[in-house]
Design a protein around this nucleic acid. Sequence first.
DNA 1: GAAAGTTGATATTTATAAATATCAACAATT
DNA 2: AATTGTTGATATTTATAAATATCAACTTTC
Lengths: 147, 147
Amino acid sequence: MNIDFPNSEPVFPISTAAKLLNISVHTLRMYEKEGLIIPKKTEGNQRAYSQKDLERVACIRKAINEHKISINGIKTIYSLIPCWNIIGCSSEDRVNCQAYIGHSQPCWSYKHPNTTCEHRDCNQCSVYKETFNCGQVKDLIKNIAKD
Amino acid sequence: MNIDFPNSEPVFPISTAAKLLNISVHTLRMYEKEGLIIPKKTEGNQRAYSQKDLERVACIRKAINEHKISINGIKTIYSLIPCWNIIGCSSEDRVNCQAYIGHSQPCWSYKHPNTTCEHRDCNQCSVYKETFNCGQVKDLIKNIAKD
DNA sequence: GAAAGTTGATATTTATAAATATCAACAATT
DNA sequence: AATTGTTGATATTTATAAATATCAACTTTC
């Protein structure tokens, strides 16, 4: 059992997750296809959602329904997360990394080959995990400020 | 004549700006009401748009129409600009500054009283002026990184 | 003085994002 | 064996953001 992340256990199948969130199974798949979430997969390639995954989806829905931010808007906002600083990747990595260069997709939706992230499991990456909560992005930006 | 910003001269009245951008006068006012743009006003309180203002609006329209980012999404993205770092405001300023704390409005749409920005003309502020171009926000974030 | 601007309020149109509902063919779970 | 999941493609519905079109009363510009 993971003491630090007791709510990160992927225990809910997609149908249960959809019921708990009061949305359709298809909507969950759509968010995944858009790159907003990366649920764990079982050995049999079935999606498994954790409590934190559900919180993340709830945040996304709040952004869409209450704050009226479009999915592409959310993707752009995620793309501004200073992953290079959180990961501490090299400047060599950065020059060829689409996640560093681009500003329309979250870093975890890129393959970014030939970087330290190439073989990283984004679902387990702190860049992904630290943004499960809404409004976290600006705090991450504040944290990299020089002064 | 301003050598550094030859295209910052507010020379176009709203009707001309609307014609050049191929949009309606009302849409320009709407963007202003939403806090996306801050055109200069003449002594008689008439709007006057510069070449850079037109570029800014063109960027906004590209974000809306091509990148499918909603107006609230654009506002949120603008709110992530590290104004505190660009301005270099004090930590006392920051603790009470809504622009620093919040993440739904661009800093220039706040009054933020009792800060160094209180009497600043946001239209002339580099935080506003440096973001006339699309995709500039992430570059500003990169610039404040420690390493 | 005529033209073009202003505020601000409201109402309507248009375009489309978001969500849902379908398929079919198949795999994993219990 | 029955249930629940998978991919992926397409089609439709629904909700609403964005834009336009109106007003009226007034001000500034040319």
